[in-house]
Amino acid sequence: MGVASRFILRRRGGKGWHWTDIVTWIWLIGGLIIMFGPAVWLAFSSFKTPAALAEFPPSILPYVTSQATVEGYDKPLQLFDTKMPDGSTRVLAEVRRIGVMSQMVDPKAPGEIIRVNMNDRTPVRTVSFATENYTEPFVHFDFLRYLWNSVFVTVVATLITLVVNSMAAFALSKYEFKGRSLAMLVILATLMVPLSVIMVPLYSIISSLGLFNSLWGVILPTVATPTGVFILRQYMLTIPDELIDAARMDKASEWQIYWRIVLPLTAPALAVLAIFSVVWRWNDFLWPLIVLSRRELYTLQVGLSIYSGELNVQWHFILAMTVVTMVPVVLVFIFLQRFITTGIAGTGLK
């Protein structure tokens, strides 16, 4: 224990606490709370019933008030911890309330009505996860459909991104031809053309191609990403040209060289691009919002935002679906965090 804490709390030079050590730990602990806290809070909340969500002050864990069916009463009755006049505490069920007085019965002996002051009782609450928040939207709100749309867009767009951009990167890194530097220049120059600048004309192109209200209209404009070409090309430049010459001497066609030699050797860069593409496409919002106007075509992000913008927000469903939307990204984060962070540090890509 001592060793562990000394290791975790090791300080500059090992002598005493410097003020920077204190700042460091405040920053780290504060960061931990601020960065994870909100998401954790949301995840906890997603298991609460609508009633619990409306409570203030809120509880951290999802509680529900306990009820019991008592002989002689049709409806289930709510249970309370009740302080009895003799000072003991009993669990009683409330039959009805008149003013500040409450009529209660012991569920085990329902014959006798006990009157107690309202302030002498507190509801019995148990932790209970409202899993129907998760199951209901899939049945009633097409969320399964949205989930499928999101998965489709993400997977297809990522596959096309990998193929199309690796082909271009191959041409731009391993062939000498006229216009190569022009192509590179165009790609470099448009590295930063954001959707927000071209959304109006892009919409008209998508409509004239008949891709409005089609998942392909969401997919196609995103797949020829200059960033993708750029990082793949940088990586392919490190593959020795002699390897390609060797393959040519081995009677490989150019397509085979691409498919059997260059692509396998570019695997690390392809993996980085694939991860980023998955995160990008999964998270895309504005463009799907523009292209998709029919409910059954919504992606998760669009569906979530539309439902959360409705007048009568059903927070219990929204929170649960937010968690569902978050899960793949959190999984990617947990398993590939190191890979992603080194990828970003290496390429400045986001």
């Binding site: 002699e242 060797a246 001497m249 490989a252």
Partner: peptide, 26 residues
């Protein structure tokens, strides 16, 4: 013709056998 390169240019992702077989398969 066949060529032996200065860097050997062996396909790093293939076994020795696959390296030898690649040209013949083609």
């Amino acid at each position: 013709l066949a060529m032996v390169f200065q860097s050997y240019a062996l396909y790093p992702h293939m076994s020795v056998r696959q390296n030898l077989a690649f040209g013949l398969e083609n």
